[in-house]
Amino acid sequence: MSEVLSDQSPTTEQTPPGAREQTVVVDDVHLTYRVIGGARRGGAPAAFRRMLLREDAPGQRSVHAVRGVSLTAYRGEAIGLIGPNGSGKSTLLRAIAGLMAPSQGVVWTRGQASLLGVSAAMMGAMSGEQNIVLGCLAIGMTPAEIAAEYESICDFAGIGEFVHLPMNTYSSGMGARLRFAIAGARAPDILLIDEALATGDAQFRRRSEKRIRELREEAGTVFLVSHGLGIIRDTCTRAIWLEGGRIVLDGDANTVVDAYEAKHDRGARTATPTATKDRS
């Protein structure tokens, strides 16, 4: 079945790999997080003993989230990253965006890779319109560009009069719509999406999937992290299955998703995407 499906998928436009333009090259990348105050406990006396015994970096642990990933992405690809929680998907995206430095290896990009993650700049106590301005400034737009885009952002978010109310009065769906509308206002060279599609009602999801396709055409390359395997099948041309910080399988979206489903629960095929990680 995967054979038939993959023949219909957009990846099969037969260009020789050498002729395609590389947009992202990830070369044997390792990423390590520093976690402070994680494991070691024991209160002040223990902390002092560690200091006296010169144990290195008291209270620090490191988490090896990505362990030697290599991949090359080309213009026109939409790549889905799938894998269980903690497999290093989001961390890998941060490295591609240049937000985290790899502890080993290099990430190369053509132009700027941007994470679709404007929520961090937004403030719940402020109104939707103030947050539109703040969010757009955060992604690097100028006041003139914001004035030009403001109406279309409001229309896309479709939250009506709520735009004048503080964001913490919004339902989670409305908040997600506004965030996506702001973040999608600008097409970066390489677009990185971390589970932005999983929220909102069906109508908004269709609209945002359409916007993703437009952004992919403008952007050239899209990476999408999602637990919604259906979304990966629908919007991606290629998928990469990560587990324990390593690549398990890299290839055509349907083939990889099929293999992933065969390994993990079969029920995921029909499951609707739920639980969004809200990183603010």
Binding site: A95, L99, V107, W108, T109, G140
Partner: peptide, 28 residues
């Protein structure tokens, strides 16, 4: 770089270019 036109992601910019980008972010 493995191919011309590719830049290292997250590379620190030279200080003049860095300052120019910072100036671009003054409204933010």
């Amino acid at each position: 770089a493995p191919a011309p036109g590719l830049q290292r992601a997250g590379a620190r910019l030279p200080v003049d270019e860095y300052t120019r980008r910072l100036w671009h972010r003054r409204w933010f």
